[in-house]
Design a protein around this nucleic acid. Structure first.
Lengths: 268, 268
DNA sequence: TCGATTCTGGGTACGGCGTACCCAGTGGGC
DNA sequence: GCCCACTGGGTACGCCGTACCCAGAATCGA
């Protein structure tokens, strides 16, 4: 029932970055390492994907790798840094996967229009969380700017130039899409987790509250809820789509306003 | 560096709901309890607010209350259920606080127009998280429908009727605002947490990555990032406001399409 | 008034966690 | 062939949630 969260520590940032950019050099003396950061990160991601962040303990990961728990600390300063590496790893993988469907053109020709691009970006964020639900529980505020992070950001920036926004506003567009997708992902993931942890389906759960609910509705204190139609919660509206459309329509309006105010569409 | 998350368990839902609705009855025999659920929940919320969810262990909470750890289990089935109660508690408090500024009218007259109401709702969600950052780490998918939850939902529904949406769509509006605010809250809270945990300010952190970043920019692989203006990240754009306006503008368009815009825009 | 009963308080213990510390053994450089 | 930097990993510490169980308190029927 518990989960782990971490942020990279003070003096270890440089070390983590070295790991990320492969700047580290193997010492000449001593026995050759039996493991590799790559293998550790790969296994860690597989484990977290399959069984959740709770299952990813240093002991368990070591067992999975066939070594002792403390051996991992020869490769990684601590669990926090391992998580940083995992973040970069899955970021790269998602970019490869999404890149295949193409939100950007490799040949330098103009990217797709911004609306499809932002749409794809938001979907990309959501899918990324769906592929790796444990990401939601990891502090990503102190993201290490590894190759994958930069590549992703570069890809995202491409189609936004055509909006005619200032640079800070362009960042805001990305942040808005990211934040919205994150919120949706949180709701989805927590729901799935609740089902898994309690062994109780959503329906079973809400049913178990029904008696209390009926009493409350009968009290007359909640007329608006009592008046809601039966399908208010069960109708298969895709909440994500709904909100995403709102965001895109809002952007559309802002782009139109910008267009007629004669702002320079591109930075020098 | 670790934090706790929980969902209420199978057989304990009824018990939790009894606690929430005060349905439980004290037994006649035996010594009088020295604690009360109310005091436990209050202290737990204070502790979590002040020192974060990590500090909220059963042992620590018991110490704070001047008793032994196991005594708490006389009042609460487990930590998961305690968290459920804490959620309901702060929900109620936030409603009281926000209610004072008034997103709804108590006298039954028409509520303010939907745009200010949704705006206030989103701000309310964000402020709620700001007051109680630990909420972000608690699984809220299986929220117990206590009095506070129902009251909050009832309050939110009020001003939305004027939008002319179907019931499921109205839910979608609330969900969209909630999800967006949650995403923003996550970013804010994780940033603050990173500062606190590492003792490193944001600037110090990004500075420490600067050498790697410069090398990457010089490589020419990231032209769009290299071309970003200096103030791209430092400009004091409020990202939350930006995205919220997008959502509201998007809603505006949708409401107009519905053709029911003849509703009274504001109460006299 | 006095057991009997039923409850509350909380000590002890178990299996988990991250990781500090330390020693044994390996193998390339001289 | 020796030295010693290096890797592997066992042990231990202080946390966590909580199962189990017993001592003592409060109230009942007699």
């Amino acid at each position: 029932m518990s989960s782990t969260e971490a942020t990279s520590g003070t003096g270890k940032i440089a070390r983590s970055l070295d790991l990320l950019w492969n700047t580290g050099t193997r010492p000449a003396r001593g026995p050759k390492p039996g493991l590799s950061i790559d293998r550790i990160v790969t296994t860690a991601v597989e484990l977290a994907d399959a069984e959740g962040l709770d299952a990813l303990s240093m002991r368990r990961l070591a067992t999975e790798l066939g070594t002792g728990a403390m051996s991992l600390y020869r490769y990684v300063p601590g669990k926090a840094e391992l998580l940083d590496l995992m973040i970069d790893r899955v970021q790269g993988e998602s970019l490869d996967a999404e890149g295949a469907t193409g939100t950007d053109t490799a040949d330098g020709s103009e990217a797709p229009d911004w609306r499809t691009a932002v749409d794809a970006m938001a979907r990309g964020f959501l899918n990324h969380f769906r592929r790796h639900p444990w990401l939601l529980k990891v502090n990503q505020a102190r993201i290490l700017l590894g190759p994958s992070a930069l590549r992703g950001f570069e890809l995202a920036l491409g189609p936004l130039k055509s909006m005619g926004f200032s640079d800070p506003e362009m960042i805001s567009v990305i942040v808005a899409a990211q934040n919205y997708a994150t919120g949706v992902a949180r709701m989805e993931i927590q729901t799935a987790e609740a089902v898994r942890e309690t062994g109780l389906s959503d329906e079973e759960f809400w049913d178990s509250q029904q008696p209390y609910l009926e009493r409350a509705m009968a009290s007359g204190d909640f007329p608006r809820q009592a008046a809601l139609s039966e399908d208010a919660f069960t109708a298969d509206i895709d909440h994500f789509e709904f909100g995403l459309h709102l965001l895109l329509d809002g952007l559309e309006k802002r782009v139109a306003e910008r267009g007629q105010s004669g702002e320079s569409p591109r930075r020098a």
